[in-house]
Every structure is written in structure tokens, then in C-alpha cells.
Design a protein around this nucleic acid. Structure first.
Lengths: 247, 247
DNA sequence: CGGCTGCTTGAAATGAGTCAACATAGGTGG
DNA sequence: CCACCTATGTTGACTCATTTCAAGCAGCCG
């Protein structure tokens, strides 16, 4: 398909899909440069998606997995009655669309929350590569397996935690993910609306708003609209764990 | 590893792991008898597990996926503070432990709810087979992908539905799964406790109890302890969908 | 500049949780 | 085989966290 003569090293691969977790996950497990070249060929050219635009639709077979290069994305399912459930938010370096890894239709949709750059990874090409690179198959299973573990954490959060704990956990989680990708853990933007946060956490958006205000009053965070800074990470953790409650 | 001379046809395979969904899923996709023979070799001898006994532990690497042959199993995670969250119930013919398909540690535990027969499918053997049988790899991805979709449905249920809808959905779901495996859709036993149901659905067990009573009063179901019969499936669906509410 | 969308805040309503007492089944041991 | 004991399930009364309804506010985009 592509020119396999052109050997690409890790640096150029990383440049072609910066912070792409698939690539990063593969690296420490002993894939060599040839493998990486092949992998690089699989990553289609980046695509720019604007706020509110759809990356893949529910019920559609995109044939791809996606990696966020910049910007952010929400995934959600739509029920028969039209109700939406936000399933997750995806930051730079993170993957989405793994529910289509079996090359069947997506059970959720992905929409950009702001101007976003996306790398597409065609699944058929990945499958071909999997035969050539035994470790890659394992990586894919690991990725999708982690996805299940994440969902299980979310089930616990939704079923067992109160509103304060949910929001605190959400903020800590975002903070950690930004940090893992080299951004500030203390200051970042909430690219999603209060409504989306509430929907994701199983709360009314008014409740989210109220809690943010309460966290502000208690000098745990500072917030103005989209912009968030975490002042007291430790207290936020205590709230998330249920070891502490406000008022 | 095993004697590949001994050709086993579908019938004997099915007998060896009755209603095993992995086998069933593979069949319609064109695996031939030789493939099935190999698959059969992978399925370790059945194991009997008694009520309350553990099939695999959280944090343990079992190296297996499991299929329920008879009985039933619950899976759950335990949080740092010791709190448990039930993640699912597994009926005859269903798989569990897919979170270990990447051959890493399980992020949840599986415990028998009553006397249960289990088939073990060692992942390493499956991986070897995947090289021999291209379709199998696809099947595994499909299975795990369905698992993600199921979790997403559950997230929607926990986040957006009230107690009545949750319990109605739960009962309809169980009914459908029993039916799919050839059991009665209208009459079955709840092998799990009210506490487990409540934990799974994010409700107090008293709430579950009250709702069962309410459904009984309205002649939608009949129930005595573990035994359940669905009288008015249609109404139950209406409640689940939120088109109808009691009192 | 004006209108729109998203956010904030207040007050009232309510669904589900908590606490507590009681009922029943099933298992155990005398 | 009966009597007791413990688990689990049921029901009631009360509480409270969160939702709902409603009104006002502030950025932002055309």
C-alpha cells in the first residue's frame, strides 16, 4: 500500500501522531523500527474537526479507531427515546472508537468539543499488521481491556457515590490525564459544558454548577466558566474518597 | 499439545461445553470441524464451584476466560475502602472474565451464586489458536466489544433511570437472557440476593424489595423470595421505557 | 448592540435512602 | 423431628440529597 522503503524512526512516528497512546503503548514492548514504520503507515493523515462536528456516528461502521491529537471529544449513546448518555471525554493522546475494534458498527458517537485534530487508524490495516507484529495484537487487547476496566470504575462511581464525590473524582481524573500528557495538572479548561458533565456523572447540570461554587467557596478549586484551577488537590481527593464532606 | 487425530464434531463439542457462547458464536462464521476440534481442546474440563466460592479473584492473573455451563455467577470489584460493586450476573452459556483477555490481572472477581459448573478457556491456548484460525481473533474482539456495549447500556441505566425503570429493565433483561438459552422467559429464579440486585442497580436493597412488592400489587409480576414469574411483560416494558409509572 | 446560549442561584418538591422493627425460610444441632 | 438461630427479605416512618422549576446573569457571536 505505502512505500515500505522509507524507514521511519520513533521520533518521526511520534511527530506524525503526537502523543498517540497506541504508538506509545507499543514502544516499550519491544516493537522494532520496522514495525513502527508499518504502524506509521496505518495512521491516516490527521483530520481537523470543528466544535460540534461528528467524528463517527452511532450505528455506523467507520472501520477506524481514532486518536485525539489536539482538542477534545465526547462520546455518547443515544437511546430509542432520543435521550443521550455521555460515555466519556477524550483528551489529546487518548483513543476513542474502540467499541468498533471488531470492525462492526459503533455503539456510540464521537463529537468534537472544540477544534480538534484526529488521527484515524483503519482497523483492517491494523488487523493485517497484527499478523506481522505479534505484540500488536496483545496491545489491542490490552487497550480494549483497559476500556472495560475504566467502564467498571465508572459503574462504581455512578452507583455508589454522591454528587460531591462524583464531581471531585471527575476533576481529579481530568487533572491526572492532563498531567500524564504533559499538561498542567492544576490548571486546565473544561472543554465540555456543565450539562455534559452532569449527564456523564448522572447529575442535573444545576447540581454540577452548585458543587463547583461550593468547591470554590471552600478554596478547593478556582473556577470561572470553562477555566479550572485546582488549589487543594489533597482535599479534593478526600472528598472523592468520601473521607470528607463540605457543610 | 493434545491429540489432534481425534476429530470431534459440533455435537460432541457442544456436549463438552453445553451452550458455551464462544463456541456458538464461532460456528456460524464458517469455522470447520478441524477448527472446532482445536477449540474443543482448549476448553478445559468443567469445574464445579459451590455457592459463595470464588472462580477468579480481583488482582489475580487467572490466564483464563470462563464460560458458565450451569448455575450462575456474579462479578464485582472491590474498592480501596472495601466497598463492593456488582458488575454483572452470568447465566448458563455466558462468558465471564473477559477483562483478563489481555492475559493481565483481573480487575474484578467472580463468585458462584449457587452450585455452578464452569468451563475454563486458557487464554494462551486461545492465542495460539487465533493464529491458526483467523476468524477466531475476530470473534474474541467481537465478544469483548459487546462487553463494552453492555457496560455502556449499564452506564445509561445507572445515570438516567429511576428505581422503577432500573428494576423493570433488570427483570426484562434476565428474562430475555434465559429465553435466549432455552429457558422460560416468564418464570425463573433470582439466584442473587436483593442486596446484590440493589448493589448492581445502584439502589438500596429495601428499595428493591419495595419495588418487587409494588410490581406484585399491580399484577405485573408474581414473586415469592427467589422465584419470579412475569405476568405482564408488556407493562414491565412500559415501565422500563419510562412510558408508565406505578402510583 | 442585541439576542442567544450556557451558567448561576434560589425555593420548593420528591424520590430514594436510612433506621428500625418484624417476618420468614432454611439450616443446624440437640 | 423438632426447636432454635441466623440469613435474608419485607414493611413502615422519617429524613435529606438531589431534582425540578423559575428567574436572573454574563459571555459571545453575528
Amino acid at each position: 500500500m505505502a512505500n515500505t522503503e522509507q524507514k521511519i524512526n520513533f521520533k518521526s512516528l511520534k511527530a506524525s501522531c503526537q502523543n498517540c497512546s497506541l504508538v506509545e503503548l507499543c514502544l516499550p514492548r519491544g516493537l522494532d523500527n520496522t514495525d513502527l514504520t508499518s504502524l506509521d503507515e496505518v495512521i491516516k493523515q490527521r483530520k481537523i474537526v470543528h466544535k460540534g462536528e461528528t467524528i463517527f456516528r452511532q450505528g455506523e461502521r467507520s472501520g477506524c479507531v481514532f486518536a485525539v491529537r489536539s482538542g477534545s471529544v465526547k462520546t455518547f449513546t443515544t437511546a430509542k427515546n432520543g435521550e443521550e448518555q455521555v460515555l466519556g471525554f477524550h483528551l489529546p493522546g487518548e483513543l476513542l472508537g474502540l467499541d468498533g475494534l471488531d470492525n462492526e458498527i459503533h455503539s456510540c458517537a464521537g463529537v468534537a468539543l472544540n477544534t480538534t485534530t484526529i488521527c484515524e487508524l483503519p482497523i483492517n490495516d491494523l488487523n493485517v499488521l497484527c499478523v506481522k507484529i505479534p505484540g500488536l495484537q496483545q496491545q489491542l487487547l490490552s487497550l480494549i481491556s483497559n476500556e472495560i476496566t475504566k467502564d467498571h470504575t465508572m459503574l462504581m462511581l455512578l452507583a455508589r457515590r454522591n454528587a460531591e464525590q462524583k464531581l471531585a473524582t471527575f476533576l481529579i481524573n481530568l487533572s491526572g490525564r492532563y498531567k500524564a500528557r504533559g499538561y498542567s495538572a492544576a490548571e486546565f479548561d473544561l472543554t465540555m459544558s456543565r450539562y455534559d458533565i452532569g449527564n456523564y456523572l448522572g447529575l442535573a447540570d444545576e447540581t454540577v454548577s452548585r458543587l463547583i461554587s461550593k468547591f470554590k467557596e471552600n478554596n478547593i478549586i478556582n473556577a470561572a466558566r470553562k477555566s479550572i484551577s485546582i488549589i487543594d488537590h489533597e482535599k479534593l481527593c478526600s472528598i472523592a474518597e468520601g473521607d470528607m464532606s463540605l457543610n
